[in-house]
């Protein structure tokens, strides 16, 4: 018999209503409150050995305390799985359920919860644990219990887990390999015939969508503008004192150029691992054209050059890291009164 630790809030744990939202976590042997509805559908496979109840506000505002309490119970009861919620569309409860599941998973204990699709906790935790699709309010409990209990049994018995659609959980967004019945070429012909005949078909890979950036207000007069130079070409001071990485960079550096008129050979180099750096090392301005900006400054084509080089390595960098670094660089440039930017990449 497998063991399940159940988590729920003050309301479903029958402690009280919103007035009890600050109640501290407590554990009860066996089933309590809504845990009882899971007892019967799980019975051949698992037993709910204890129920943890915690107030929504308490968990939301004291997450570390909540987690510590949960860890203690896991160490005490050694459950095979934690079932949390379902929390339907309840925001704080949803986050608590997600966090409880994540904490359990970190300890190597399987964990599932159930949430309504608009619950913000879905986006926050779907990568960390299975979140089953349930209704918006507690009225959905009747459908939620068999769905969650059925899925829990599959996980507990090691049965094969179907697709997110089949099992009704939110996709984690993780690509997992599998072997299909027909080869790729035969599937391509099947898909093509469905497409050309107007029949439904399912692409095997949804394309990622990227946000189109709206251009901001243009510079009115270049000859008065302060221009900054940024690069993802991994240009760093020779010897790489800051240990800029060759790939998957998570930080950028702002290098002061002082009175320099160009990036001199031997003083700068590229550490980017994604291209042949010989040409950039011969003349770093081939990647970061600081020399030309200084010439154009002298000629009065542009007002001035921001005397810094913002540099990182753009090689397998994740979109999330790139976005954050862009925001950081933008703040720095705004503070320096920069009006426009040239960004080079390799």
């Amino acid at each position: 018999m497998k063991k399940v630790l159940f988590y729920t809030n003050q309301f479903f744990g029958q402690v009280g209503g919103e007035d009890m939202a600050y109640c501290q976590p407590e554990v009860t042997e066996g089933m309590r409150g809504s845990a009882n509805t899971f007892g019967a559908p799980l019975k051949d496979t698992a037993e709910i050995v204890a129920t943890v109840v915690c107030g929504d506000n308490f968990y939301a505002e004291n997450m570390e305390t909540g987690r510590a309490f949960l860890r203690e119970q896991i160490e005490k009861y050694h459950p095979d799985m934690v079932i949390a919620g379902p929390a339907f569309n309840a925001g704080r409860f949803g986050i608590a359920c997600g966090d409880v599941c994540k904490t359990a998973k970190e300890m190597g204990v399987e964990a599932i919860t159930g949430l309504y699709e608009e619950n913000p906790a879905v986006e926050m935790y779907k990568k960390d644990c299975y979140i089953l699709k349930v209704g918006k309010s507690a009225a959905g409990i009747r459908k939620a219990v068999p769905l969650m209990a059925g899925f829990a049994k599959k996980l507990l018995t090691g049965e094969k887990i179907g697709s997110p659609k089949e099992e009704q959980y939110y996709a984690k967004g993780q690509r997992v390999n599998l072997f299909r019945e027909k080869n790729g070429a035969e599937r391509a012909v099947d898909m093509l015939l469905a497409k050309v005949n107007g029949q439904p078909y399912e692409t095997e890979l949804e394309i990622s969508t990227y946000e189109k950036v709206e251009p901001s207000t243009p510079i009115a007069d270049l000859s008065k503008a302060k221009i900054a130079l940024c690069t993802t070409g991994g240009i760093v001071p020779f010897g790489n004192p800051d240990h800029m990485v060759a790939a998957t960079a998570k930080f950028w550096k702002d290098y002061a150029l002082g009175d320099a008129q160009r990036l001199e050979q031997g003083q700068w180099e590229s550490v980017h691992a994604g291209f042949d750096p010989v040409y950039a090392n011969e003349d770093p301005n081939r990647v970061a054209p600081y020399d030309m900006l200084k010439i154009l400054e002298k000629e009065g084509v542009i007002g001035s050059v921001h005397p810094f080089l913002a540099s990182t390595t753009g090689n397998s960098t994740s979109v999330a890291d790139a976005t954050r670094m862009g925001q950081e660089i933008a703040r720095r440039l705004l503070d320096a009164g920069v009006n426009g930017v040239l960004l080079t990449s390799t």
């Binding site: 996709a171 984690k172 993780q174 997992v176 072997f179 790729g184 599937r187 095997e204």
Partner: peptide
Amino acid sequence: NLQGNTYLSATTV
């Protein structure tokens, strides 16, 4: 193989 001479594929979970 990108001419589809394989049964391997991937899916989102």
